[in-house]
């Protein structure tokens, strides 16, 4: 028996919004410790690695490990039916071929349930390898999303240059060129708004705007984003 409850459906809506443009389908691996999802995107260029710890749920029970292959477009259809503040309960029986999503309104007067067929997806054991990155930048997630959006107008790729002093984002194309520099925050009054750089050695790397803009769909999940960079390894 698997059962996971969130007091606000909004949390899972945000998680789904963060991944559904990259993945058509994915396996949610449920165990006692929580739900894991690892999948390469449809073009096999990036990896989505998601961990929803059991203690992040308001109620969590998983008697036996369970792999639930889901079509994310169908899951999105279901999640769209929930109000943000509805309580969400996901349920599946052991060896079941369906999962149930139940939404309860705050006043308990509306209860809806949706059953979705599970899929058998190829299981691959994927993950982001432990890496000592040359530069790790922590910055406001909204600011990063804004920079990616703004620079996408000027080119198909963004160059990120990181030194101890700051981080520079650049793009260029037919319309001209654009540079955005962020200095490391001198005092950390508000942690959420700070830019913090841990640098072993400077790096200059180029990334496709298309993917950066897909990654920033996760922006509503957290105030800060961490960019970990080294030459010749993925961001």
């Amino acid at each position: 028996m698997f059962e996971a409850r969130l007091n606000a459906s909004n949390v899972l809506k945000k998680v789904l919004d963060a991944i559904k443009d990259l993945l058509n389908e994915a396996t949610f691996d449920c165990s006692d410790s929580g739900i894991q999802l690892q999948a390469m995107d449809n073009s096999h260029v990036s990896l989505v690695s998601l961990s929803l710890r059991s203690d992040g749920f308001d109620k969590y029970r998983c008697d036996r490990n369970l792999s639930m292959g889901m079509n994310l477009a169908n899951m999105a259809k279901i999640m769209k039916c929930a109000n943000n503040d509805d309580t969400l309960t996901m349920k599946a029986q052991d060896n079941a071929d369906t999962v149930t999503f139940m939404f309860e309104s705050q006043n308990q007067e509306k209860v809806s349930d949706y059953e979705m067929k599970l899929m058998n997806l190829d299981q691959e054991h994927l993950g982001i390898p432990e890496t000592d990155y040359a530069c790790v930048v922590r910055m406001p997630a909204m600011e990063f999303a804004r920079i990616c959006r703004d620079l996408s107008q000027f080119g198909e790729s963004v160059v990120i240059s990181c030194t101890k002093e700051g981080v520079k984002f650049s793009a260029s194309g037919d319309a001209g060129s654009a540079n955005i520099k962020l200095a490391q925050t001198s005092t950390i009054d508000k942690e959420d708004e700070s830019v913090i750089i841990e640098m072993q050695e400077p790096v200059t790397l180029t990334f496709a705007c298309r993917y950066l803009n897909s990654f920033t769909k996760a922006t509503p999940l957290c105030n800060q984003v961490q960019l970990s960079m080294s030459a010749d390894v993925p961001l």
Binding site: M40, H44, V45, S46, L47, L126, G127, P129, V233, P234
Partner: peptide, 14 residues
Amino acid sequence: GTIQNWLAGYFGAE
């Protein structure tokens, strides 16, 4: 294909 293969290997796919 080459970059995709390299990335798949990097992330641990067979």
